[in-house]
Structures are given as structure tokens and as C-alpha cells.
Design a protein around this nucleic acid. Structure first.
Lengths: 380, 380
DNA sequence: TTGTAGGCGTTATCAG
DNA sequence: CTGATAACGCCTACAA
């Protein structure tokens, strides 16, 4: 491990001068800089992140906090996608990532403790019980935080547009002729509330009377609970013609249950997922679902977090809403209705596979402006 | 951030004494220890990993190097499973993990540079082009390394039992009556060679003459290339009755191609995957495949790596072989043969869904002994 | 423009 | 048993 001291010896300058040259200090001879840089490169020098961190209090490490109710960890396909995109962007900006957990060495360490212990410059939080006191403690600390799909007043959040998405989804199903629409939703979170609210409002606007027995609670990413709810729905006297599920993964429990009942999809019953994970498009029949843009969600979370870290004075926390896209698969049957066949217009980006730059302007405010400016400028 | 100095002030002992008390030093009054520990806990003290690392050269950070040919990142379901299990075990042992890449801040940093930069105590390497000079450089450094599914003389490797697994798979297919067995394999790696070798040997033992046109090269985790190979196989005059694929993910390309040709699975053609990822069991028909035990692979990689780090003198690098399990799905048709109907006995663990403790003894040597001893002892 | 000196929080050595 | 002191590699006033 070659250090600054080694370089300093080799080229005759003091370690202070070397340090300045390496970090692009202003008050230093250009010629000297070049020389030192050459020697450093020749010796294969790389800074020691640990030593630098001790001095500067900046580790260039971002914490990632993710714990879902089913403890899927990295096996959670939706989260893995978001995280991967987060990671790629973070690395591009010069940061590594560290998973935050409470299980390090089995010591009773809170999330905040772990962050301090590792000196995370910032933390992204996703898919967790946001009412957990440990999470609250972390959010209220002075570490920059970005949350995904949950809003805290104090910090930036990246939000999938759940309201619009559920509206699109319900409208899509409605346009296919469905009126008896059931909704199996996940556990009580702000996301669930938004989806439920949007479900009610959209139905109401479309003139559908929502039956309370069509609403069932399950758990996200848990096929078993969705399967159970499905069984209950199938047992109803007046059973729904279409069921919306919490996500593409838990819908598997529903499919199993429907098959077990001897029904076929979509002939006997239509189903709709959520997330648009890869799995949803390799199932047969291909799932009708809502694709959340994990690419943008992750990337933007990283970009915002780094922005907040590097510009603590001028950074303004904000809510960034990322639109989703209905993917019209093969699991919603076209029903022939006696009367009303009016087709309702729906969201502009619907049916489009990819979000292009245009659709990004759907985002609230000009959240992306800075981001794209940064990318174009090729910051380093 | 409360430091040792704060504690030292508060309870009147020097920082040296406090440090010793905190780290369980030997030559120190038990009463003093208790007192200091109390005060520390009261003040909510947690050590600063960065400062400690600078002094001790131990970061309690494990590097993870994973780059597959299709750049799937964390979206690679098989690897995600291994990694998740690796992560859980690492955390249990007091380590965090850091992803190693070459893209940090877009500086030209080799893998080894990144490891040094972050001061990784050890590195696990998986699913990468092991002939990459950067990888070789890393392996030849003095950082403890554990590789997954590749053997370097100098370091421990955790190996899925490819030879036995392919033998089991081919025998299974043979027992179902198949004689015209094609094999689409991944790019040239040591794993591929083992699988190919085992394929040839098993066929030979079973009296099958392997047609060279039945062997096709594709790329792991790349549905497109497997699709292409499938198309070629289907176009053969004497087409195979069963195709083995590189993995469960790339088999999707094969399925698409088979459907496109108007053939049905398994009626017209049988197919077999590899890995046993979750996806394979939610497809319809359910895939016949080989389940690799990602749980054990990841856990053991972490356990071995930490062992190597913490006992540099006594640690002996070794190869640990983890058995796989044939999962009999619905994609291999039972053929009725005119003559020979002898059923060959196959691997003991075949058809079992879960590896239980007994089957662990299949592992080469007593690799697990230390591991389980450690777990039972509840080390901390 | 360059160099000196001190300190970030921790641990290790060695003397008291 | 306890404490003073130095050092890990780097950065940064401040002095030269």
C-alpha cells in the first residue's frame, strides 16, 4: 500500500504539497502538480478511504435500509431492481453502498447506530415498517435520508405514482368491460392507503359501487395471504369478475388458488398484478400489470441522496413522483356488455413499454432537471 | 457521536484503560470493566469503525465481486440468492459487505485497487470471467479470497457439484426413456467444462452415442443465445427429444422458440433447466431442473472467508463441494421404449426438495464441521 | 508556492 | 492494574 508519505519521499515534496496536488488544491504550481500526479500514478497510488474518512468525516458510503415483512432480502425481485439501479448510479458518482441492518455481530445495534458505526454519508430507506421507532430515530437524525415510496416531511422521497397508476389500472379493467372488481391490497402503509383511495375514487367516478366484501387485506410479497384472500373472494355468492393483487409476486398465490378451484384465467376470472417485474412477463398467460419504473426510482434516489450530501446548504428536500405504465397482458378478459360501452380515456403513458424523456415531465416539479443537467455535464 | 475520550472524561479513567475495558483486555480490574461498560452503555457509545480500521487494518468489510457476462447485476436471481445468504452469514459474524467494481467515480481502478481503497478484509468472487487479468491480480494479492464455482490453487472455493448433478440430470432423463439428448451449454468456463465432461461420460456409460450436432454453445443467463441454439436444434433432421439448458433463466429463450415453432412442452419436446431458481417452479409446466443449494453456497462462502481472515496462520484453503438436487418437474415426458426399460439408480438426494443435515455429509471432507461447531458454540 | 504541525478516534506499547 | 504516548494515513490551518 503506497501512501502519500511514500510519494512525498520519492519526489522531494512534503506530504502536504502532495496531498494538495492530489486533491486539486488551488495554491500550487501547475508544473508541480503534474510531476506529483505522474509519480503517484507510477507508484500505483490510491487514497486510503479509511484514513481520509477519519479526517474528513466523509466515507463516500451510502447506507441501504430495506426490510420487508416477508424478509425476502435480496430475493425480492422488485427491490433488487431498484437497488441495482441505485447502486449503478451511486458508483458512477463515486460512492459505495453498505447494507444497514440490526444483526451485525448480534449486538443490539439500532439502524442509526449501524450508520454511525460505518459513517454512512447518507441513507436510502425502502420497503420497511416506517413506524418502527428505529426507523424514526434514523430519519430524525442529521444524516441525509431519501425514502422510497414513503413521505417524511424532512427528507426527499421518491414516489411511484400510486394514485395515477391504480386509476389507470382500474380504468383499463373497466374499459375491458369489468364492473365487479375486487382489490386485494397489502398491509397498511402509506402506499396501500394511496392505492385504496385511488381505487375508491376511480370506481366512484366510473359509477361503480364498491362492495366492501370485494376489499381484502393481505401482505405484500406473500403469496400465501393473497391466496387466502383469493379463496374467500371465489367463495362469494356474487364473485368478482376481476381481482387486483398487491404485487406480481403474491399474485402467484392467487393463481394457485384459482387453478385449484378449477377456474381458468382469464376465461373464468381476470387478474391484475402490480410492479411489472420480469416474472410477470414470462408467466403464461402474460400478466396484465403495472410496471413501476425501477430504473428511474433507483437512479433518482441515488442522485438525490448524493445531491443532498454534497450540497447540504442549498439542497431542498422534495417529493419526486415517477409515473408507472400499464402493461396490457393476457390476464384480463374483454367482456361484452349489454349497455354502456363507452371507453374512458386514460393516462397518456399507458401501454408504452418504456418511459421516454418526454414522459419524465410528468414528474412533479422539475425534479429531474438537475439530474439530467448533472448527467449531461458529465460531472466528476 | 460519543467517543472513548468522552467516556474517559466521564468516568475518570484514561482512554487507554477505557479502550481495554471495551475490548475485553486481560490485564484490567473486573470492577473497572463493569463500571466503564456501564458508563459507555449509558452514553450510547458505539465504536467508530473507521478510526478502528485505520489503526488495526481491519475493516470488518467483505468485498463481493460479481460480474456476469450479461451484466444482470442484482437482477440475477441465482446470484442474488447466493449473495443474500452470504450477507446474512457475514452479518451474523460481524461483517458488512461492499460491492467491488471498476466503475467507482469512473476512475480507472482495478478490482484490487477498489479492495485496497476500501480496505476489504477478504473478498468473495463469483460468476465472473476468471481469466480477466484484473481478477487474477486480485486473486494473487494477499487478500483472503473465496471463489464460488471456480478453483484457484491458492484459495478456498465453494463448488456446486456440477459433475454429479449433470450425471443425475442425464440419468433422470434417460430413465424417462430419452436417448436423443441435446445439451445447450454456457460459455467456456470451468463449470461448463465439468458439466460437458460429465454429460459425455454419463451418456457413454448409459450407452448413448452423443451426436456432435446435439451440443450447442450459448451464454449463461442469456435467453437470446439459448433461443438461437434451440432454433438450430429444432431444425435438425433428426431432432432431439430432450434439451438441457445452461440455466433456468436462459431456458425462457428456448421456450419462446419452441412455442414459435408450434411445438408443445413436453408433448413434442422435453426440456430441462439448471439452478432451481424460484422462477422455475412457478412456470407452467413446472420446470424439471437441478436445484443448486444457494443457501449453503452463500453461507459457507462467508463462513470460510471469515475463517480465513481470522485465522490466517492455521487456515487451510480447501475445495468444498455442495450437492445439488434434481427437481422432477413437468417438462420431461415419459417416453415408451420398445426394448430396454431398465431404470438406473441415481443419486441419493434426488427428488428431495430440501437438503437436510444428513445430506450435508456428502460434502467433500469435513468442511462443515468447523462451521457447525462455530454455530453451535454461538461464537461472538 | 511550499512546508510544518496537529489532529480525526482508536489501539498498542511500555513504563509506572 | 492503569496511564502516557505514539502511530495508523490523510487533510488543513497557518507559517515560511
Amino acid at each position: 500500500m503506497v501512501t502519500i508519505k511514500d510519494i512525498s519521499k520519492k519526489c522531494g515534496y512534503s506530504s502536504a504539497t502532495v496531498s494538495k496536488a492530489l486533491n486539486g488544491g488551488a495554491d500550487i504550481n501547475q508544473k508541480t502538480v503534474e510531476h506529483i500526479l505522474n509519480v503517484a500514478k507510477g507508484m500505483g497510488y490510491f487514497p486510503n478511504a479509511v484514513a481520509r474518512a477519519l479526517k474528513t468525516n466523509r466515507t463516500y458510503n451510502l447506507g441501504v435500509l430495506f426490510v420487508d415483512k416477508t424478509f425476502s432480502g435480496l430475493a425480492h425481485e422488485y427491490f433488487s431492481s431498484v437497488l441495482n439501479s441505485f447502486k449503478v448510479e451511486a458508483e458512477r458518482l463515486g460512492y459505495d453502498i453498505t447494507f444497514i441492518s440490526r444483526n451485525i455481530n448480534r449486538v443490539g445495534m439500532s439502524y442509526l447506530d449501524h450508520c454511525h458505526y460505518r459513517g454512512c454519508d447518507g441513507v436510502v430507506i425502502a420497503s420497511i415498517d416506517f413506524s418502527d421507532p428505529d426507523v424514526v430515530e434514523l430519519v430524525q437524525s442529521n444524516i441525509p435520508i431519501v425514502t422510497i415510496d414513503h413521505v417524511f416531511n424532512e427528507c426527499t422521497s421518491i414516489l411511484s405514482d400510486n394514485v395515477q397508476s391504480v386509476k389507470d389500472l382500474v380504468t383499463h379493467v373497466y374499459n375491458k368491460g369489468h364492473r365487479k372488481i375486487a382489490f386485494i391490497h397489502g398491509e397498511d402503509t402509506s402506499v396501500t392507503r394511496k392505492r385504496l383511495g385511488s381505487f375508491h375514487r376511480t370506481c366512484s367516478n366510473l359509477g361503480i359501487d364498491v362492495q366492501s366484501e370485494y376489499l381484502r387485506a393481505a401482505i405484500y410479497h406473500d403469496p400465501k395471504s393473497s391466496g387466502l384472500a383469493t379463496r374467500e373472494l371465489l367463495a362469494l355468492k356474487n364473485r368478482p369478475s376481476c381481482i387486483l393483487y398487491p404485487d406480481d409476486f403474491s399474485i402467484l398465490g392467487g393463481i394457485t388458488e384459482i387453478e385449484r378451484a378449477g377456474l381458468s384465467i382469464p376465461e373464468d376470472i381476470s387478474i391484475v398484478g402490480y410492479d411489472g417485474i420480469h416474472l410477470s412477463q414470462v408467466l403464461r398467460p402474460r400478466l396484465t400489470t403495472l410496471r413501476q419504473d425501477t430504473e428511474i426510482l433507483g437512479r433518482e434516489a441515488a442522485a438525490q441522496l448524493v445531491d443532498a450530501i454534497e450540497n447540504p446548504k442549498s439542497y431542498i428536500p422534495q417529493q419526486i413522483v415517477v409515473p408507472g405504465t400499464v402493461i396490457a397482458g393476457e390476464t384480463v378478459k374483454q367482456l361484452i356488455l349489454a349497455g354502456n360501452t363507452h371507453i374512458f380515456p386514460i393516462y397518456a403513458s399507458i401501454f408504452k413499454e418504456d418511459i421516454n424523456e418526454k414522459s419524465i415531465s410528468y414528474c412533479v416539479g422539475s425534479a429531474f432537471a438537475g439530474h439530467f443537467r448533472r448527467i449531461r455535464a458529465g460531472r466528476d
